[in-house]
Design a protein around this nucleic acid. Structure first.
Lengths: 108, 108
DNA sequence: CTGAACTGCAACCCTATGGTTGCACGAGAG
DNA sequence: CTCTCGTGCAACCATAGGGTTGCAGTTCAG
């Protein structure tokens, strides 16, 4: 049912290290795994793993230049997920409102 | 740095079972753990654990009526998180744009 | 009063996953 | 040509966390 990209985005965003990584990436604009490893308190390998997850979620894109692997943040999935959340919120509100109104018109 | 509620909301939303649980809850408007256990393919105890996580994230509120514990979905954290994500997206865009412009005015 | 319906606590299992280290390989820099 | 930098792969460790079962305690229904 929810095979949509939102799954992966939420999963990716759930990890604090990954969020810090995205933050560092956005600050630099684009960077390699080794460069990012200098910023964060984890090994380069850990960062590579996180970047893989983020890329699968569409939150970063990778491009090789020579021996370097450059990662760039992608905002589109963020926007999509934000809309998804907002829609879900209004959907809840509508439903709860309907239920409340139904109860009011029956009880008293 | 990110001790904000967004942390917990993202973490809570990352789990598919939890999302299904929220969906069932929104559909019913409000329900007890036992009632929800009938809908989902997991034990009541598992559901209780999930509800605890969701409540800590502010996504549901609980109220006891007699021997029943009734849970209600809360949309506010969803909206807040949606706004957070949207803001983050625009922040990225601004930054990347600035970097790109800077590169253009220097290189050629 | 007795039994059924729900909740709450605790002990446990097991897999997913965040993290590490070590090594081998391709590509520039000198 | 050689040295070094950065990547990629693989094995491995340890904890968090999703899930279960069992049991004791409340609160309502008959």
């Amino acid at each position: 049912m929810t095979a949509e990209p939102v799954d992966e985005v939420l999963g990716a965003l759930a990890d604090p290290t990954r969020r810090a990584l995205l933050d560092a990436l956005a600050r630099r604009g684009a960077a390699s795994a080794s460069a990012l490893a200098a910023d964060l308190p984890v090994s380069r390998q850990a960062i590579v793993k996180h970047l893989t997850v983020l890329e699968q979620a569409g939150l970063v894109s990778s491009a090789r230049t020579g021996r370097e692997m450059r990662y760039t943040p992608r905002s589109a999935p963020l926007d999509a997920t934000a809309r998804w959340l907002a829609d879900l919120a209004t959907s809840w509100d509508r439903r709860l409102d309907a239920i409340k109104r139904a109860a009011e018109s029956e009880d008293p």
